[in-house]
Amino acid sequence: MTTVADRVLDGPHGPLRVRTYVPAAPAAAGLVWAHGGGFAHGDLDMPEADGVARAFAELGIAVVSVDYRLAPAFRYPVAREEVAFAYAWAAASDLTTGPWALGGASAGANLATGATLKTLHAGGETPPLLVLAYPTLHPVQPAPDDALRAALDAEPDADRFGPDVVSAMYENYLGAPVSTADVYAAPGLASAAELAGFPPTIMINDEVDELRVSGEAFAEILRAARVDVDCSTEPGTQHGHLNRPEEGAAQPSIERFAARILALASPDPRPTRTTPTTRAPQSLSADATTP
């Protein structure tokens, strides 16, 4: 049975709440996870946070889910710095003796990517694996191709992330025009040279989702930088499928992510490809529960 605990860390911007999920058997590896919500919404109880973390824990992975501060009350780079801090805390913890991956969904995937890129450029130790679910990485993203545009037109409820929406989302996060975004706020702007040395990355995008363009464009730049990247699409999904476990597509994605995370703990941690489809931080308090 998974042991769940709410903890409050002495974070870089004040108290930072995280929720830890520790499997009954010793965890082989860990994952620090950031939920999505357009930088402005979301919490530790949403399915994309709590449900995802429990699913990973059931597969033998310890999870630290981060309750980062939200815009507009807290602007960039607060959330990114809190995700980076939580990763450092987890890596120094005793929740698992294995390696720790870093990841997130949608805006949370942006935070994980930006935190990793900032650490890389600062000469720090980066995670051995990035785990990205339908990330947003461009404040002004490329236009969808004809096939995706037709799919979005056929499913109007999926057509939620046009240029104006995405631009407004980033401006709310930045507290400034999108033209001011640096590569740590919008990692999709990074060049191949700036991504040299970036860690292996697994990315699963949604099929009928304009943000898929952002994820796929970033994957291409990673390949140009000779980064190992596994970029696939979960068939039949709209944006945010991990937040809708009742639709059935969440578990296959989590299992593919988990296979890569658990491979980090193997004696030969070389990347395992999945088959593509179309100051040590301190804890201030802990409140453990075992649901």
Rank of each mutant, 00 (worst) to 15 (best):
I202E: 11
R279F: 05
G123D: 09
S65M: 03
T180W: 08
V32P: 01
V213T: 12
A147K: 10
V18L: 04
Q141K: 09
E58I: 07
L111I: 00
T275I: 15
D153Y: 13
A186L: 00
Y76I: 09
R7F: 04
T275P: 09
A265H: 01
A79G: 04
P47I: 11
D228G: 09
I202H: 14
G60P: 07
R212T: 03
R212A: 04
N172V: 10
Q141A: 13
D164W: 05
E171G: 03
A219T: 02
A258S: 07
R7Q: 14
A263I: 01
L189M: 07
I254T: 03
R223V: 13
A28W: 06
G103N: 03
A90R: 08
W100S: 12
T201N: 09
G162S: 06
T116F: 11
L130C: 14
D228H: 15
G188R: 10
A263G: 04
A250K: 07
A193R: 14
A86D: 02
A176I: 08
S93H: 07
T290R: 13
Y170K: 00
W89K: 00
R160Q: 15
A25T: 11
F39Q: 04
A192P: 08
D67V: 07
G240A: 00
D94C: 10
P271A: 07
L189H: 04
D164N: 06
S106N: 12
D230R: 11
L16E: 12
Y68R: 11
D10M: 00
M169Y: 13
V32K: 08
P127N: 02
D157E: 12
Q282N: 11
D206P: 06
T233C: 10
V131G: 02
A91S: 08
T275F: 12
G60S: 06
V4Q: 13
A5M: 11
P135L: 09
L242A: 05
R7W: 14
A133Q: 13
V227P: 06
A88C: 11
A25F: 01
P269G: 01
L120T: 04
D182F: 02
S214I: 08
D50H: 15
F218N: 05
A57M: 13
L132N: 00
T289P: 03
S253L: 12
Y21R: 01
R244V: 10
R256K: 13
R226S: 14
A143K: 01
L211I: 05
I261R: 07
T126I: 15
A258Y: 05
G197P: 01
T3P: 03
A168F: 12
R279D: 11
R226F: 11
E58Y: 07
P12R: 00
A24S: 10
V66T: 10
